[in-house]
């Protein structure tokens, strides 16, 4: 447990150093060491809540997730554009509750972020204890379409866990049917 905490801190320090180096725009010993010192100070002064990450990044799953995410984003963006210019048509929508199968804090956050970045879906509320996302979906005409959307969200969760999930989450995803 203690070792995991230190690993998380080191990853956070490296991430912050990366941002610092990017802000300077050039990689040199000075920017790297300076960034590292500032990252350590930031982490000591503003300690992060313990987000434990038990998973591993799977390159193939990540590629598949990213590819699908980008296509979804482009397709959905143009759907919203079409909707914006279809004058005289009032879009109806729905708020659906989706219960995720493996709701770790990080998994819940990543699913919510990925959903929110794709146009047409917006997180209205989250029940962290039960692992339920309340999603507002644009342009839903019937209850069947809302059900269909729930399956899409569960598919997205499956892709995210296949890309970044821990072995335990992976087992749940493979066993519990969508």
């Amino acid at each position: 447990m203690k070792g995991g905490r230190w690993r998380d801190r080191c990853i956070a320090a490296l991430g912050l150093t990366g941002i610092w180096v990017l802000l300077w725009g050039s990689f040199s010993a000075l920017t790297f060491v300076g960034g590292l010192i500032i990252a350590v100070i930031v982490l000591v002064v503003f300690p992060l809540p313990a987000v434990t990450y038990a998973g591993r990044i799977h390159p193939l799953g990540t590629l598949r997730f990213l590819g699908r995410f980008l296509t979804d984003m482009v397709v959905a963006s143009f759907q919203v554009v079409r909707l914006a210019f279809s004058f005289g048509h009032v879009p109806t929508s729905a708020i659906v509750a989706v219960k995720l199968r493996a709701p770790s804090d990080l998994g819940l956050t990543m699913t919510a972020e990925a959903l929110s970045l794709v146009p047409g879906s917006l997180i209205v509320d989250v029940d962290r204890k039960k692992g339920v996302l309340y999603v507002h979906v644009l342009e839903v005409k019937s209850a069947e379409q809302a059900e269909q959307f729930k399956e899409d969200v569960l598919e997205l969760e499956r892709r995210i866990i296949r890309a970044f999930g821990s072995p335990a989450e992976r087992r749940i995803i493979e066993e519990v049917p969508a």
């Binding site: 984003m73 482009v74 959905a76 963006s77 919203v80 554009v81 914006a84 009032v90 879009p91 929508s93 929110s116 970045l117 794709v118 146009p119 047409g120 879906s121 917006l122 209205v124 507002h136 644009l138």
Partner: peptide, 17 residues
């Protein structure tokens, strides 16, 4: 768009892409 929730879709998303 007719109400605030659907406007939020427009305000945050096509603009991300």
């Amino acid at each position: 768009f007719p109400d605030l929730l659907s406007r939020m879709h427009a305000a945050t998303k096509p603009q991300v892409l």
